[in-house]
C-alpha cells in the first residue's frame, strides 16, 4: 500500500464519500446523484463498463473504496459528454470519472494493465518532455506497449495511415531525433516541478 493510500485510509476511515468529496476533482457532486441511471444508459462505451457511473456513485456512498479505486470502469470514459448532457441533476460525470481515475492512479490503486491508464502515462511522459506531443514516438510507444511482436503487428496494420500522415506532413521522421518542443522547455519543467511539489505537500498534509 502506498503511503498516500494508507494515509487516506486512516483519515477517512468512516467515509469514502467524504474522501472522494475532498480529494477527487468534482467529487463533491457525487452526493447529488439520484440513481436514475441515465448516464449508464447513455454511455457509448456502456457495455464495457463493469460498473457504470451511477453504480460507482452508489458504491462510493456504500463505502466500497477498494472496489471503486481499483476498478477499471472510470478509465473507460472517452469524454463524449453524453452523460453530462443528459444528467437530470447536472453532475459533471465525465470530470468525476477522470477525477476518480486520477485519484486512483495517485494512490497507486489503478489497475496496472489498464490500457487507458498506460496510454495516459505514456502521453504524459511524451508531452512533458518537450511541451509538445511527439506523435511518432508516442505512436511507436503505444504500438509496442504490449510487447515487441504485438507492436510489429499493429505497426504493419497501421502502415498506410502512417505513410499518409507523413505525406500530409502531420508527422515527420525527423521527430525520431529530438523532435519539436516549446521554446522554453526549462521553464515548463520548472512549472511542472512546482506543481508536483504542491501536490506532494498536500499529500504530506494528509499524512499528518
Amino acid at each position: 500500500m502506498s503511503n498516500l493510500n494508507q494515509a487516506m485510509v486512516e483519515k477517512y476511515r468512516n467515509s469514502f464519500l467524504q474522501e472522494v468529496q475532498a480529494n477527487v476533482e468534482e467529487g463533491d457532486w457525487v452526493k447529488m446523484c439520484m440513481q436514475c441511471g441515465v448516464c449508464a444508459g447513455s454511455c457509448p462505451m456502456g457495455p464495457y463498463w463493469e460498473h457504470p457511473p451511477q453504480e460507482i456513485f452508489m458504491m462510493i456512498r456504500a463505502g466500497k473504496r477498494e472496489e471503486v479505486l481499483s476498478s477499471d470502469s472510470m478509465w473507460m470514459c472517452t469524454s463524449c459528454y453524453n452523460c453530462i448532457a443528459r444528467c437530470p441533476r447536472g453532475l459533471p460525470i465525465t470530470h468525476i470519472m477522470h477525477g476518480l481515475a486520477h485519484y486512483a492512479d495517485r494512490l497507486g490503486l489503478a489497475p496496472k494493465e489498464q490500457p487507458t491508464r498506460k496510454f495516459a502515462n505514456k502521453f504524459w511522459d511524451n508531452l512533458t518532455k518537450k511541451g509538445r506531443v511527439n506523435e511518432l514516438k508516442l505512436g511507436l510507444a503505444l504500438y509496442f506497449m504490449n510487447g515487441f511482436f504485438e507492436g510489429i503487428k499493429v505497426a504493419l496494420a497501421n502502415q498506410k495511415l502512417g505513410l499518409n500522415m507523413l505525406k500530409a506532413k502531420r508527422m515527420s521522421i525527423a521527430e525520431m531525433f529530438g523532435g519539436h518542443g516549446v521554446k522554453d522547455s526549462n521553464g515548463l519543467h520548472a512549472i511542472l516541478k512546482k506543481a508536483r511539489e504542491i501536490e506532494l505537500a498536500k499529500a504530506d498534509e494528509f499524512k499528518g
Binding site: L17, K31, M32, M34, Q35, M58, R61, A62, R89
Partner: peptide, 14 residues
C-alpha cells in the same frame, strides 16, 4: 427539498 438534503450531505440508499 430532496436536492437540498443531498447538498447538505444527506445520503440516500435504495
Amino acid at each position: 427539498f430532496y436536492r437540498g438534503g443531498q447538498e447538505k450531505g444527506v445520503t440516500f440508499t435504495k
